[in-house]
Design a protein around this nucleic acid. Sequence first.
DNA 1: CTGAAAGCGCTTACAG
DNA 2: CTGAAAGCGCTTACAG
Lengths: 336, 336
Amino acid sequence: MTTMQDVADRAGVSIATVSYVVNGTKAVTPATRAKVEAAMAALNFQRNRAARALAVRRTQNLALVYPVVERRLGTTSLEFLTSAATAANRSDYHLTLWPISNDAVGLTDLLSAGLVDGVLLMEVLLDDPRVTTLRQAGTPFAMIGRTADPSGDLYADIDFDATVSAALDRLESLGHRHLALIGERGGTGALPGYGPQVRTDEAFARLVAERGLRSITVGCEQTASAGADITQRLLGEHPEVTAILVRNEQATLGVMVGVRQAGLRVPDDVSVIALGTTGEISTMSSPALTMMQSPGEELGRLGVEILVDYLESGTRTPPQLVPCTFLPGASIAPAR
Amino acid sequence: MTTMQDVADRAGVSIATVSYVVNGTKAVTPATRAKVEAAMAALNFQRNRAARALAVRRTQNLALVYPVVERRLGTTSLEFLTSAATAANRSDYHLTLWPISNDAVGLTDLLSAGLVDGVLLMEVLLDDPRVTTLRQAGTPFAMIGRTADPSGDLYADIDFDATVSAALDRLESLGHRHLALIGERGGTGALPGYGPQVRTDEAFARLVAERGLRSITVGCEQTASAGADITQRLLGEHPEVTAILVRNEQATLGVMVGVRQAGLRVPDDVSVIALGTTGEISTMSSPALTMMQSPGEELGRLGVEILVDYLESGTRTPPQLVPCTFLPGASIAPAR
DNA sequence: CTGAAAGCGCTTACAG
DNA sequence: CTGAAAGCGCTTACAG
């Protein structure tokens, strides 16, 4: 490993001067700057992160905390993660994975080790113990998602209202009046008070009422077979339903099967639109699923940017709400 | 932040003594140990990782390098990742995400910054530039996967022979004699010389010949619709095929659809078994997919353990080959 | 504009 | 068994 001292020696300057040009913290003569830069290039110098961290008391590390036990990471969460890691790197930060339990145990220990400058929270609950812990500890953090009352906190989340509204626009314009929403209640992996579910349910109930549509909402375990069963039963008991919205990543493809099991076709007899999933799910479906696609790339990036802005300049970026985007597919059609 | 000095002051000992008890590096009287431990508990002491890293020249950080650009992370890779992060934490290491390009550019810079002690490589190619870079740099690394000639390197990988063999056992015992293998050639996201694909193809060709079975192998883009199309065509042109093995996570569910489009049923007319995917895919399918399940949890853990063992004690654990495990489903049945 | 020197919080020979 | 002190590689007032 080549150190700053090596660079200083080769350039014939002091170690302080090297530091100034590396960090751009003080004005330096073009001539000396050139010498230093040449030396750095020749020696392929990279400053030691641990030493720097110790000196400035900042690590340039961000922790991504997610509850492995309570909630299996799906492909949608994966997009947050990939995007967040990339965004962090772009700002010269590194993202460290903290697969810990949702109960905040262990969180404190990790924080006091001075390993990270800030924390990024995924899979946030309406009443989340981790948020309480982080607030108390005074640790800078940002959420991808939000609690019931996130005022004063930093976050980026999906705009559930706009998302449901856009989906309803599509379906209404195709003549659908009788809708069903399949969510994810009571199944394995369901977190009580999980934001996306609660907010989608609320938005759906309100918007459907406002628009004078008829609707039915059911919960469903997070498996395709559960999705298939529930869909088959649903269509049997409510033959007037012509469109189904699904917010349950694991059950989504099962819903498609369930329609067929009910002796009906997608999209001729029943339209299906998925809410908040990744394009990946769409490509796994045949016919391709129409969906309101989770803005995973954008949210992951925003979460990191909000956090980094706060860390570097104290800026408290206002909450960012991003709607899911419409991804055309072959699973919706005019109402029969 | 409370420091070792704080603990030393409160316990009435020197800072060196505190270090000895924290690290267990030297014998300490039970009495003084007790005093120190009491002080640590009272002050909730956690030693500063940056300072320690600087002193011992080890960061307790591991980098997980994966090619974001070239290969989208799927749910199977996600399992490696989660498991690796958990295993790292268990050994008091942290896993940092390095979503970099597959061409090894940038890898060197990151290494020389002294941020990590070792590197874990995912999605390894038969001829992988990153491996060359790491070898040259002398950076300790372990692969989840392996190159064409991994001798001398540390790795854990799937035992493709055993996996294909086990799948063939199942199908043969059900009376299947005409098999098809659908892989992932030429599509988006396909890496040239991607180990799992090449090794599965080889094993399949060899084992099928040894057993005197008839077979046909086709490549397929990584989407469900491509899977559906190819399957439909395949079954049209080769009506004698009674069982399909799929090694293409994205196309798998499409294959199920393709069978139906060909006017046949799964599993009554055609058996389908997936190779190397996660249980997650099975739950998204209806009927549930029978599969040889990727040992993601185990491989992620092994990769970290192999690397950590080497870092801590210089132990070069022999290569670990783990077969996929059979996951019963409802997609295979006796040959018609 | 440049440099000498203290300090960040640990670890670890070395001495006692 | 315990401690004084040097050193890990940086940053940053402070002096010149």
